Simulated assay, not measured.
Amino acid sequence: MTPSVTGLKLKQGSRVLEVQFDNGDHFVLACELLRVCSPSAEVHGHGKPVLVTNKREVNIVKIEPVGNYAVKLVFDDGHDSGLYSWKVLHEMGRNQEALWADYLARLKAAKASREPMIPLKVQFFDPDQS
């Protein structure tokens, strides 16, 4: 039987979500891990997971309860389609080292980055304006 969540504490400054379960388990999950391993169809695709990149600084902006079995996490990049059931959160907590190692390996294989995309403001030099 999956333990139930008895406490959620979002620490936006350190970008982590602390999750406490009724069996005594306690996990600290990085917002980045929660985002890149989202249980949403958008991330999992149709049987082939999509590699989510550039999320090192992603944060959770809102936690919405879904019945008494899950929460919907709203991220500051607009992602909000994954339902994090108590089972999903518990499994992520128990397996976060393996999930993280797999994610880093997939990033490396794809030559992708965790670093956020930086919007560039390009200014062109106009020789007639000098």
Rank of each mutant, 00 (worst) to 15 (best):
M1I: 14
M1F: 14
T2L: 06
T2I: 04
P3D: 02
P3Q: 01
V5E: 03
V5H: 07
G7T: 06
L8W: 01
L8A: 01
K9V: 07
K11R: 14
Q12L: 14
Q12T: 15
G13F: 02
G13C: 04
G13Q: 12
V16K: 09
E18Y: 02
V19M: 04
V19H: 10
Q20E: 10
D22R: 00
D22W: 00
G24S: 15
G24F: 08
G24K: 14
G24Y: 02
D25W: 03
H26K: 15
V28A: 09
V28C: 12
A30V: 00
A30F: 00
C31P: 03
C31W: 00
C31L: 02
E32Q: 14
L33N: 06
L34H: 07
R35E: 03
V36S: 15
C37V: 05
S38G: 06
P39S: 05
S40A: 08
S40M: 00
S40H: 04
E42Y: 03
V43G: 13
H44T: 05
H44S: 12
G45T: 15
H46W: 01
H46F: 02
G47T: 12
G47C: 14
K48I: 14
K48N: 10
L51H: 07
V52S: 13
V52H: 09
E57H: 01
I60C: 12
I60N: 07
V61I: 13
V61S: 07
I63S: 08
I63Y: 07
V66F: 03
N68W: 11
N68K: 07
Y69N: 09
A70Y: 01
A70K: 02
A70W: 00
K72A: 09
K72D: 05
D76M: 06
D76H: 01
D77V: 05
D77A: 04
G78N: 03
H79C: 08
H79F: 04
G82V: 10
G82L: 11
L83I: 02
Y84R: 00
Y84E: 01
W86A: 12
V88I: 07
L89N: 03
H90S: 07
E91T: 09
E91D: 13
E91S: 10
E91Q: 13
M92I: 04
M92W: 04
G93L: 11
E97C: 01
A98F: 05
W100T: 08
A101W: 00
D102E: 10
D102M: 02
Y103M: 03
Y103T: 06
Y103H: 05
A105E: 15
L107D: 11
L107Q: 06
A110N: 08
K111T: 13
K111E: 15
K111W: 01
S113G: 11
R114F: 06
P116V: 07
I118E: 12
I118R: 12
V122T: 06
V122G: 08
V122K: 12
Q123R: 08
Q123M: 10
F124Q: 15
F124S: 14
F125K: 09
F125A: 13
D126P: 06
Q129H: 11
S130A: 13
